[in-house]
């Protein structure tokens, strides 16, 4: 019988145990049905969403995302997307906690610039401190700076999530060396968040030793999002297994795979 390695390789974030290492966002899909199908096919257990104003009576029958992505079935990870200050991010997390009946796991992202959506690290540090003191379990989106990643971990963030490339860019893991440096010093899960465009990008992140990958556009903006969700599930599993298996050493010269002895003459 083939051993099932995933059974012995859980992902643990803030004492919660997960089987899937792929985390998926719920933005940018064509409709709720496509969102539901893509998320389900991806096998993701952690699913992000955003918190926004309701319409005030203009559209009373608007479908509710929480009816499609049920908090009973998924671990919901509310984000603070489009917050540009620590204050806005903290306010958003507190509203999310009320919205989700006391749920304390949040994705903190504080942005610094509309064009690059690059994280504002100083505001992120401020917000993380307030949220942790307020009892939140913070999974934090940040730059791929190893020193900042370590600092966020030391503050008590339950996962550190460096970008691979700017949000929604699909450029892949632009600095794998930095991700490796972050991984070398980390005691908490390191999750590549943002930048993944293809399944091979996700595999690379996992081969580096990341604990998981969080993505949205790579699936939602694929020509066939549901098929891409399936590909990403496999890519993340594949990269994880490759990492656990340990790659062969690199050599400068060839090394024959077939025995040299017994060749005919």
């Amino acid at each position: 019988m083939t051993p099932d390695f995933t059974l012995n390789d859980p992902l643990i974030i803030a004492d919660r145990t997960f089987t899937s290492r792929l985390m998926i966002g719920t933005g940018k899909y064509k409709d709720m049905e496509e969102t539901r199908q893509a998320i389900e096919t991806s096998g993701a257990e952690i699913v992000t969403l955003a918190v926004r104003r309701t319409n005030i009576g203009q559209n009373p029958n608007e479908p509710n995302l929480l009816d499609v992505i049920s908090p009973e079935k998924y671990c919901i990870l509310p984000n603070t997307a489009f917050c540009y200050t620590a204050e806005e991010a903290v306010r958003t997390c507190r509203l999310a906690r009320e919205l989700l009946g006391g749920h304390d796991l949040v994705k903190l992202e504080v942005l610094g610039d509309e064009k690059t959506l690059y994280p504002n690290v100083t505001e992120t540090l401020k917000a993380a401190e307030i949220l942790i003191n307020d009892g939140f379990k913070v999974m934090v989106y940040t730059s791929d700076d190893p020193l900042i990643a370590k600092r966020l971990e030391d503050m008590g963030c339950v996962a550190v999530m460096p970008l691979g490339a700017p949000i929604g860019s699909g450029l892949g893991i632009s600095n794998p060396h930095n991700i490796k440096l972050i991984l070398e010093n980390a005691q908490v899960p390191i999750i590549v968040d943002a930048g993944v465009g293809t399944p091979s990008d996700a595999t690379l992140a996992m081969e580096l030793g990341c604990a998981g990958v969080l993505m949205n556009s790579a699936v939602a903006h694929a020509q066939q999002p549901v098929l891409m969700a399936q590909a990403m599930r496999k890519a993340v599993e594949c990269g994880r297994e490759g990492y656990l298996a340990g790659r062969m050493p690199r050599k400068a010269y060839a090394s024959a795979s077939s025995p040299i002895e017994g060749t005919i003459s």
Partner: peptide, 10 residues
């Protein structure tokens, strides 16, 4: 008064 809900996001 601010009233918020969950919507799709990454």
């Amino acid at each position: 008064v601010e009233i918020v809900r969950a919507i799709g996001g990454g």
